[in-house]
């Protein structure tokens, strides 16, 4: 019983880590640019295909696959911003609508290149089982937890201790005033897109070996990311971190009860409930205190 519970717990942490890496980008987009980007999961999907291509066709070692994917997403996102979002700065619903178009375009482009068949990303750690007490977990899953911790720490240091991070937080709070301080908003927006790309790229490279990679895998992840962001509070980085692990654990334990089919429904009901009762999210707002 204890073994079962602790395996569910570890599983929840792993899923939560992935949710967190994906949701952090979404919450940064909202906090700094005030946009809803429904194509974020599709960028994850593109990242997963990058990992697939780098691993299967270029035969890169796994660590190189991770780096290539992160870099690829970090380059891709600013380009997408330039093509898709930049002209719509300041519009409330415009970027949301274009992101729907972007999601469709990315899905069909990837399908055109790689077909709709499910692909597998190779990783040496997939068959490496690690025993923790009585539970054995694939090393691939366990890799996710320390990597995520490192990344979160790095993000925290970046936002709290560097001048660029300070600019990101300042623009999130008061974009007009930041401009008076000589901050170019477009520079900060560019930083946010690169950050979101790095985070989602890491998620894609580490999670893809455990998932079936298909062109439509992104939609579900977008939905999960928004559940996290709603529970954590829109634009709230700390909230997203907490909420991602909560959602990961809920997912894992609901599945453990034999209700795997209902996990999404329950999480979505949670989203709707939070929106009705506490739209500011679990944790009081810190990053975007703009009314």
């Amino acid at each position: 019983m204890l073994a079962f519970l602790s395996s569910l717990f570890i599983n929840g942490l792993v899923t939560g880590s992935m949710f967190m890496l994906v949701a952090l980008g979404v919450t940064l987009f909202y906090g700094v640019l005030r946009i809803i980007n429904l194509a974020h999961g599709d960028v994850f999907m593109v990242g997963a295909y990058m990992a697939f291509y780098a691993g299967t066709y270029l035969h890169l070692p796994y660590w190189a696959v991770v780096i290539v994917t992160m870099m690829g997403c970090a380059v891709l996102y600013p380009i997408l911003d330039l093509l898709v979002f930049r002209r719509l700065r300041g519009s409330e619903l415009g970027p949301l609508i274009t992101s729907v178009g972007l999601s469709m375009a990315l899905e069909s482009l990837v399908q055109g290149i790689f077909t709709a068949n499910a692909q597998a990303v190779p990783s040496p750690y997939l068959n490496n089982l690690v025993n923790i007490g009585t539970v054995s977990v694939p090393l691939q899953s366990l890799l996710m937890i320390p990597l995520t911790l490192v990344v979160v720490a790095a993000l925290y240091v970046f936002l709290r201790r560097t001048r660029t991070g300070l600019m990101v937080r300042a623009v999130a709070m008061e974009p007009r005033v930041s401009q008076l301080m000589g901050v170019r908003p477009e520079y900060v927006y560019g930083v946010v897109f690169v950050l979101a790309g790095l985070l989602v790229g890491l998620a894609a490279a580490t999670m893809a070996p455990e998932l079936y990679v298909t062109p439509t895998m992104g939609v579900e992840l977008t939905v999960d990311a928004y559940i996290v962001v709603v529970i954590g509070g829109f634009g709230n980085v700390e909230g997203a971190i907490v909420a991602a692990f909560i959602l990961g654990l809920i997912n894992s334990f609901v599945s453990g009860l034999g209700l795997a089919d209902w996990a999404t429904t329950i999480a979505l009901a949670l989203l709707v409930g939070f929106m009705m009762v506490r739209p500011s999210g679990l944790v009081a707002e810190r990053l975007g205190v703009r009314q």
Binding site: I36, E92, L96, V223, L271, V272
Partner: peptide, 11 residues
């Protein structure tokens, strides 16, 4: 606004 779009998406 944004919130309604997300809530209806979830529904």
């Amino acid at each position: 606004g944004h919130y309604l779009a997300i809530v209806t998406l979830a529904i």
